[in-house]
């Protein structure tokens, strides 16, 4: 495994191996001094064409706990503003000598394209509506830690599936690990076609709530109002929000999860986030350990990752297409 671009590239055994390595990284993270020398001398750079402080900090914390050097690139302060192409930016960064690039971009497919341009490992930290594989890994890890595994579990993913890379990645990871997934959303917030998605669909949260082992709430973005996909936030909350009344009808062992940042009072009631089976803070904590596992697996799990690897094959026709506005 050289890159982590999407859950779709992984086998069940790859996921399980990454979750197993995460166990070791959780142990490291719990120590008084959470740092090991594993990736000393390696350089990990976060290349975020789209801002995401949480994800960037999580990756940088992961790299630091493994003693890697970290560099950070963000569009706001860079030459991208002066019109530099993605490819030139990436080649400039690579020339500084890096072993792994953590890439976030608003367009689907950019991390895949960058992986073809560089010889270092590329980790997709979110591309458009497409993929966010480390989120899927940390969600799977959190469920596994509480329920022992995902085999045979029932997971409802509630909310704006259509615009969510988290939903796409989670559906693939959860089903690959043996869970059955129900998408719960109004028709306007589901993708136009769910062909090939191994899921059930419901438009009625109350009808499916009591049967679930996990209720996973997606962030409801306010701009969806202006696009007229839901009539109002209040109506969305009335139909699809996890209110305290709805939470009371969950099975006692059922977990409440959210990828953050939350809109308290919209998709999730503030009181629900304080319930003992709401594991949202734990998702964040596990995120660092999962990203340590990914970095270690990519940079140490194979012979001579990064600097010693074969030269990249140059490709023409390189500029990625925009897939959404």
């Amino acid at each position: 495994m050289k890159h982590l671009l999407g859950v779709e590239d992984l086998e069940r055994s790859d996921l399980e191996e990454l979750l197993r390595i995460t166990d070791s990284m959780v142990e490291v993270s719990q120590r008084a001094m959470p740092r090991v020398p594993a990736l000393r001398g390696r350089t990990v750079v976060s290349v975020f064409f789209e801002d995401s402080t949480r994800t960037r900090l999580s990756f940088e914390a992961a790299a630091k706990r493994l003693s890697a050097d970290t560099m950070s690139f963000s569009v706001g302060t860079s030459s991208v503003k002066k019109g530099e192409s993605v490819r030139d930016t990436v080649e400039t960064i690579e020339a500084m000598g890096v072993d792994a690039m953590v890439v976030r971009h608003r367009s689907a497919g950019v991390p895949d394209q960058i992986a073809r341009w560089t010889s270092c490992s590329v980790i997709n930290a979110g591309d458009g509506w497409h993929q966010h594989p480390t989120q899927a890994l940390l969600d799977s890890y959190t469920i596994r830690a509480h329920l022992g595994g995902l085999d045979g579990r029932r997971i409802a993913i509630v909310g704006d599936v259509k615009h969510s890379r988290v939903a796409r990645s989670d559906v693939q990871a959860f089903t690959l690990l043996g869970a059955s997934v129900t998408l719960v959303a109004p028709p306007t917030l589901l993708p136009p076609s769910l062909e090939g998605w191994p899921v059930e669909v419901s438009h009625d949260l109350d009808a499916v709530l009591a049967d679930q082992d996990v209720v996973y709430l997606l962030r409801m973005q306010r701009e969806r109002m202006t696009e007229a996909l839901v009539p109002s936030l209040r109506e969305y909350t009335a139909c699809f929000g996890l209110t305290i009344q709805r939470a009371a009808r969950l099975a006692p062992h059922a977990l409440v999860m959210h990828p953050g940042p939350m809109n308290r009072g919209v998709e999730i009631a503030a009181e629900v986030t304080d319930l003992p089976n709401a594991v949202i803070a734990e998702q964040v904590r596990n995120g660092v350990a999962v990203r340590m596992a990914v970095l270690f697996r990519l940079l140490a799990g194979t012979e001579l990752g990064g600097a010693g690897a074969a030269a990249p094959v140059p490709e023409v026709n390189a500029e990625p297409g925009e897939d959404h506005g």
Binding site: E17, R20, V28, V36, A38, L66, L299, T302, E303
Partner: peptide, 16 residues
């Protein structure tokens, strides 16, 4: 996570 041959051959943790 403490080996000196990380990068020379594949290294993965075996257990916690």
């Amino acid at each position: 996570l403490y080996r000196d041959d990380i990068g020379l051959r594949p290294v993965l943790p075996e257990a916690v």
